Lab assay of single mutants.
Amino acid sequence: TGIVNVSSSLNVRSSASTSSKVIGSLSGNTKVTIVGEEGAFYKIEYKGSHGYVAKEYI
Protein backbone atom coordinates (compact mmCIF):
# COMPACT_ATOMS: atom_id res chain seq x y z
CA THR A 1 0.00 0.00 0.00
CA GLY A 2 1.21 3.49 -0.81
CA ILE A 3 -0.05 7.07 -0.71
CA VAL A 4 -0.10 9.39 -3.75
CA ASN A 5 2.28 12.26 -2.94
CA VAL A 6 1.38 15.06 -5.37
CA SER A 7 -0.26 18.47 -4.93
CA SER A 8 -2.61 18.14 -7.91
CA SER A 9 -3.07 14.76 -9.63
CA LEU A 10 -1.05 11.75 -10.76
CA ASN A 11 -1.57 10.05 -14.12
CA VAL A 12 -2.38 6.34 -14.13
CA ARG A 13 -0.99 4.71 -17.27
CA SER A 14 -1.78 1.55 -19.20
CA SER A 15 1.84 0.33 -19.07
CA ALA A 16 5.11 1.18 -17.34
CA SER A 17 6.13 4.01 -19.66
CA THR A 18 5.63 7.78 -19.72
CA SER A 19 4.65 7.43 -23.38
CA SER A 20 1.87 4.91 -22.67
CA LYS A 21 -1.81 5.85 -22.68
CA VAL A 22 -3.18 7.71 -19.65
CA ILE A 23 -6.15 5.69 -18.36
CA GLY A 24 -7.01 7.92 -15.41
CA SER A 25 -5.66 10.03 -12.59
CA LEU A 26 -5.44 9.97 -8.81
CA SER A 27 -5.63 12.88 -6.36
CA GLY A 28 -2.95 13.62 -3.80
CA ASN A 29 -3.18 11.58 -0.56
CA THR A 30 -5.11 8.77 -2.32
CA LYS A 31 -4.24 5.31 -0.93
CA VAL A 32 -3.23 2.78 -3.61
CA THR A 33 -2.60 -0.97 -3.47
CA ILE A 34 0.74 -1.84 -5.07
CA VAL A 35 0.79 -5.26 -6.73
CA GLY A 36 4.14 -5.11 -8.51
CA GLU A 37 7.07 -3.08 -9.79
CA GLU A 38 8.34 -2.46 -13.28
CA GLY A 39 11.34 -0.17 -13.68
CA ALA A 40 10.45 3.32 -12.41
CA PHE A 41 6.76 2.40 -12.03
CA TYR A 42 4.52 0.62 -9.55
CA LYS A 43 1.73 -1.59 -10.83
CA ILE A 44 -1.39 -0.77 -8.82
CA GLU A 45 -4.97 -1.96 -8.52
CA TYR A 46 -7.11 0.53 -10.45
CA LYS A 47 -10.86 0.40 -11.14
CA GLY A 48 -11.12 -3.39 -11.05
CA SER A 49 -8.00 -3.82 -13.18
CA HIS A 50 -4.42 -2.55 -13.05
CA GLY A 51 -2.56 0.61 -13.94
CA TYR A 52 0.93 2.03 -13.56
CA VAL A 53 2.13 5.07 -11.63
CA ALA A 54 5.59 6.62 -11.34
CA LYS A 55 7.37 5.43 -8.17
CA GLU A 56 8.68 8.91 -7.39
CA TYR A 57 5.14 10.11 -6.59
CA ILE A 58 4.16 7.26 -4.23
Rank of each mutant, 00 (worst) to 15 (best):
T1L: 13
G2F: 06
G2Q: 06
G2T: 06
I3V: 13
I3F: 12
V4I: 08
N5C: 13
V6S: 12
V6R: 08
S7F: 07
S8M: 12
S8I: 11
S8T: 14
S9P: 11
N11M: 14
N11V: 15
V12F: 02
V12L: 03
V12I: 08
R13N: 09
R13E: 02
R13P: 00
R13G: 04
R13V: 09
S14H: 12
S14I: 14
A16N: 04
S17N: 12
S17I: 06
S17A: 08
T18W: 14
S19E: 13
S20R: 03
V22G: 03
V22T: 07
V22H: 04
V22K: 06
V22C: 07
V22P: 05
I23Q: 03
I23C: 05
I23W: 03
G24P: 01
G24W: 05
G24L: 04
L26S: 01
L26M: 06
L26Q: 02
S27P: 15
S27R: 14
S27C: 12
S27K: 15
G28T: 13
G28A: 14
N29R: 11
N29K: 10
T30I: 08
T30L: 07
K31F: 13
K31W: 15
V32T: 02
V32C: 05
V32K: 00
V32S: 01
V32N: 01
T33L: 09
T33G: 04
I34H: 00
I34P: 01
I34G: 00
V35W: 07
V35H: 05
G36Q: 05
G36V: 03
E38K: 07
E38Y: 09
E38F: 10
E38L: 07
G39R: 05
G39D: 07
A40H: 10
A40N: 13
F41S: 03
F41R: 01
Y42D: 01
K43E: 06
K43N: 03
K43A: 06
I44C: 01
I44S: 00
E45F: 09
E45P: 05
E45N: 09
E45Q: 09
E45V: 15
E45T: 09
E45C: 12
Y46S: 01
Y46I: 04
K47V: 06
K47H: 10
G48M: 07
G48A: 07
S49A: 14
S49Q: 14
H50W: 15
H50K: 05
G51L: 01
G51D: 00
G51A: 10
G51T: 01
Y52R: 00
Y52P: 00
V53K: 00
A54H: 09
K55T: 04
E56Q: 13
E56L: 11
E56K: 15
Y57K: 07
